[in-house]
Design a protein around this nucleic acid. Structure first.
Lengths: 329, 329
DNA sequence: TTGAAAGCGCTAACAA
DNA sequence: TTGTTAGCGCTTTCAA
């Protein structure tokens, strides 16, 4: 091509040094003119690279993952990489073996772990043993074995505690999601903030999600459990907007008014939060920034090899699903 | 390996004929014992194949795509293929060039087109020129250029027309989505069925979605438009559950009771339909079956090369968002 | 700074 | 039915 060796073309394409500006220009022109595109399989084979980044999650639907995927995908493309999203069937037996096959087949150069996978020891072990770099999104575990992108959960809960406190709520129920997920940390953060405001620790009660059935069933079950006791909470804080929506729906069904009889708080600021009535007070995370950061961490390894941690702020968005607690008549 | 030539191993791996059962067994055992996995890059390079299937859609979030993706992904794996989902930024300029680069880079052996891409002529042209087989999900266009998986839209609208007719609705508004999407066909099907039941064609009015802003904004805008006129419809039929939810939410806000003052119908039977109050009457499509069928069509080309078409039934699911029309006082 | 040769790990084509 | 050879399209290594 253009009277240069294959190797020179390769050097230009890969932006290697030691190429004259003149030659570089000539090759670039030829590449454009011929619409030449290197064969990725050949490149992979020769260089033992794939330029593929994997993104592993347990549920692709829902706002959280799609948003992360979109932003990470763009960030990857900008750096000459390609992002592939994989759904991990954590509930199937041998799922780790399935992931292993997957990793082997795709040969990702790096992997982004969405919660709750960012806390899965078996998976981290697997990645480590295969020598695949990874970045975890919002893990719970403290001793990080890979780079981390997380949110200021404590800050979010502090904002929320203050909001509910000012509205006069003194019977608050917190619903946390999967055991190994960020939401498992929130009860503690919330309680601390609530107590710091002068609240009684006994005002706060807890419910935990059971992992069975689909969103609708889970939401309904949690709603029933939470609102069943005779001393019903005046505010319920859920670990995502779906469950919060289910809670509101259940309240409607029971003839309870939201927020008059019950305030409901979600998490994530998904579209859904604004599609239901009343719209859901929720906590917004900067998912775009987080995804971009994850890609950066992956593609720019830390010089000293020390695991890095990036923490992003969250923001309480107050909507109609929370209001002042009704005065006891 | 095990005293056989590389080619023999290759033959066993690819399940080619002309291998003695004995040799096949021996090789398989050796493969297991050594945990040998072929290098996909090498295989790609030599055989000019990738065993990759692409799934192209414009919005990865939302129930529709995730569901299709999950089922198609499983079907692919079962046949030794791998499914990769790509989001196509149809609103960006040069998006078709971006897709072209993508297709070139990933070298999919086949592509599944989700609506509205299944009707995109530019994309179909591109795929044809590249010689990439494709299957379209629920396209509008009649003269199919590739295999098709579609739903019985007419049947669905007939079920719905009957439902609303029996409830006494005589002022019905239909909201259709993007111009080039299945939902664009529904007004006609619905009207036909409605008229066949004895209804007056003038009872049915139409609204069309504008493609700008996010789900929330679109839903709100449509709700405002639809309920603005002085002769408000008694029933609104939306093209998806998100918009239906927005409609219900807007009705609540305006102090209208659903379904007493307004009946609302969605489409897709997304989780969301059961998370809002009242739960949304909607039309369920067998997305799992459709996805599996799409993969089958892709991997088993028709012998005569004629484009094939598979049609799946849909099912009206009646929930609380529709009810009898209120008697005029 | 550029080029030549060898080889990445498979499979197609052909020979035995 | 099995094995042999060449080569897929790049990059690595080394020589010029």
């Amino acid at each position: 091509m253009a009277g240069v060796s294959a190797k020179t073309v390769s050097r230009v394409l890969n932006e290697e040094p030691h190429v004259t500006a003149k030659v570089r220009e000539r090759v670039k022109r030829a590449i454009l003119a011929l619409d030449y595109r290197p064969n990725p399989a050949a490149r992979s084979l020769a260089a033992a690279r794939t330029f593929l980044i994997g993104m592993l999650g347990v549920r692709l639907d829902g706002f959280y993952f799609s948003q992360l995927h979109r932003s990470a995908s763009q960030a990857c493309r900008a750096q000459g990489f390609h992002l592939v999203m994989e759904e991990v069937g954590m509930r199937e037996r041998d799922w780790i073996a399935a992931v292993e096959r997957n990793l082997h087949y795709m040969r990702y150069e790096g992997v982004i772990l969405c919660p709750p996978l960012s806390d899965c020891v078996a998976l981290l072990d697997l990645l480590e043993s295969r020598g695949i770099r990874s970045v975890g999104i919002s893990p719970v575990t403290r001793d990080h074995r890979c780079d981390i992108v997380e949110t200021d959960e404590a800050g979010g809960m502090a904002q929320l505690a203050e909001h509910l406190w000012k509205l006069g709520h003194r019977r608050i129920n917190l619903i946390s999601g999967l055991e190994n997920s960020v939401s498992a940390l929130r009860p503690e953060y919330f309680t601390k903030a609530y107590v710091a405001l002068g609240g009684d620790i006994r005002d706060v009660s807890f419910t935990r999600m059971a992992w069975q059935g689909n969103v609708v069933e889970i939401g309904r079950q949690l709603a029933e459990d939470t609102l069943a006791g005779e001393r019903m909470p005046t505010a319920v804080v859920s670990f995502d907007d779906e469950t919060a929506a289910a809670m509101i729906s259940y309240a409607h069904e029971r003839g309870l008014s939201v927020p008059c009889d019950l305030s409901v708080v979600g998490f994530d600021d998904a579209d859904l939060a604004q599609l239901v009535w009343p719209p859901i007070t929720t906590i917004h995370q900067p998912l775009d920034d987080m995804a971009r950061a994850a890609v950066s961490l992956l593609l720019e390894p830390s010089p000293d090899g020390e695991p890095r941690k990036l923490c992003f702020p969250v923001r309480l968005i107050i909507r109609g699903s929370t209001g002042p607690v009704r005065q006891q008549g």
